[in-house]
Simulated assay, not measured.
Amino acid sequence: MNTKLEEIDGKYVATLEGEMDTMAATEAEEVLKPLYHSDGKDVIIDCTDLEYIASSGLRILLVILKGAKATGSKVIMHGVNDDIKNVFKLTGFITLFEFD
């Protein structure tokens, strides 16, 4: 699993690649922790190359969302494939996040 975080045009962009299983989620969380307090900047989670997400990965995304909403920011899920989107539907997260 590769996780990258950068700031582009006043937005945070997190890129997730590979499989976010429980062990990978722990490592990804260290990279994504700055997003827990997005400071009013919108957050884009690029899932174009994300192949799998475990519940621990969903928890991280939920914490990011809560932090963003607290400062009036949005979290936009980008490039989510049908398998990952199905996980969001099954867990009810589909209504919490914006998708493009």
Rank of each mutant, 00 (worst) to 15 (best):
T3N: 02
T3V: 15
T3L: 03
T3P: 06
T3H: 04
T3G: 05
L5I: 09
E6H: 06
E7K: 09
I8Y: 00
I8F: 00
D9I: 00
G10W: 00
G10V: 01
G10R: 03
K11A: 08
Y12K: 04
Y12Q: 09
V13H: 02
V13Q: 07
T15C: 02
T15I: 14
L16T: 11
G18W: 07
E19M: 06
E19R: 14
M20Y: 12
M20H: 05
D21N: 15
D21F: 01
D21G: 05
T22P: 06
M23H: 13
E27G: 01
A28H: 05
A28N: 06
E30R: 12
E30A: 13
V31W: 01
V31P: 10
L35N: 03
Y36S: 04
H37V: 13
H37P: 02
S38L: 06
S38Q: 05
D39P: 01
D39A: 13
G40H: 02
G40C: 08
G40R: 04
K41W: 11
K41S: 11
K41T: 08
V43A: 07
I44A: 04
I45D: 10
D46M: 10
C47S: 10
C47M: 15
T48W: 02
T48D: 08
T48L: 10
D49V: 04
L50C: 07
L50M: 14
L50K: 06
E51V: 03
Y52E: 07
I53P: 10
I53G: 04
A54G: 03
S55E: 08
S55Q: 04
S55V: 05
S56T: 15
S56P: 07
L58P: 00
R59T: 12
I60F: 01
I60T: 13
I60H: 02
L61Q: 03
L61C: 09
L62E: 09
V63L: 11
I64R: 00
L65H: 06
L65F: 01
K66L: 05
K66T: 10
G67E: 06
G67S: 10
A68D: 05
A70L: 13
A70V: 07
G72S: 07
G72Q: 04
G72C: 09
S73N: 10
S73I: 12
K74M: 13
K74H: 14
K74L: 13
K74Q: 15
V75N: 08
V75M: 05
V75C: 04
I76N: 12
H78N: 15
G79L: 05
V80I: 13
V80R: 04
V80Y: 04
N81L: 07
N81P: 13
N81H: 07
N81C: 12
D82P: 09
D83V: 11
I84V: 15
K85Q: 13
K85W: 06
K85V: 00
V87Y: 07
F88Y: 13
K89L: 11
L90S: 10
T91R: 03
T91P: 07
G92W: 09
G92V: 07
G92I: 08
G92N: 10
F93S: 11
I94L: 05
I94W: 06
I94G: 00
T95A: 14
T95P: 01
F97N: 09
F97T: 05
F97G: 08
F99H: 10
F99R: 10
D100W: 00
D100L: 00
